[in-house]
Amino acid sequence: MMPLTSQTQLIHFLQQELLIPAESIAMAQRQEEVFPDLLPMVLWQYGLITIEQLEQVFDWLETR
């Protein structure tokens, strides 16, 4: 089994732990083309996650 990329792991966390809909993540990923590596910030900027969820994402990223 191939190891998951960091981006794939992040998406899995967003969907499984924070219950962010796939459609919201896909929309943010389209915006991410303009702002690479800023998926969590794009989700927050567009109101797709709360500031508390953004903090959870940053906490999760710190443990990676």
Rank of each mutant, 00 (worst) to 15 (best):
V57S: 04
P3S: 11
I51T: 13
F58K: 12
R30C: 09
R30G: 05
I20E: 00
F58I: 13
L43A: 09
A28P: 04
W44M: 12
E55S: 11
R64K: 12
E23I: 12
L61R: 14
M27H: 11
W60S: 05
Q15F: 00
P21R: 09
W44H: 13
Q53L: 08
Q15Y: 00
Q7K: 14
L39S: 10
F13A: 01
V42I: 15
L54E: 07
E55D: 14
T63V: 11
I25V: 10
L48E: 10
Q45S: 11
M27Q: 15
T63W: 02
E17H: 08
Q45L: 13
L14N: 01
T5M: 07
L61H: 03
M2S: 13
M2W: 11
Q45C: 07
A28T: 03
G47L: 06
E33P: 00
A26M: 06
P21K: 13
I11Q: 06
D37K: 15
W60N: 07
H12L: 09
T5D: 08
L61Y: 05
E32T: 12
G47K: 08
H12N: 14
L54T: 09
E33K: 15
E33G: 01
W44T: 08
E23M: 06
Y46G: 07
Q29N: 07
D59T: 06
A28K: 07
V34D: 13
Y46F: 15
L54K: 06
F35G: 01
W44R: 14
P36C: 11
E62G: 09
L54H: 05
Q53A: 10
E23N: 11
W60P: 05
F13H: 01
V57R: 04
V42Q: 09
L48Q: 10
E62F: 07
L14D: 01
E62P: 00
I11R: 06
D59K: 08
L61N: 05
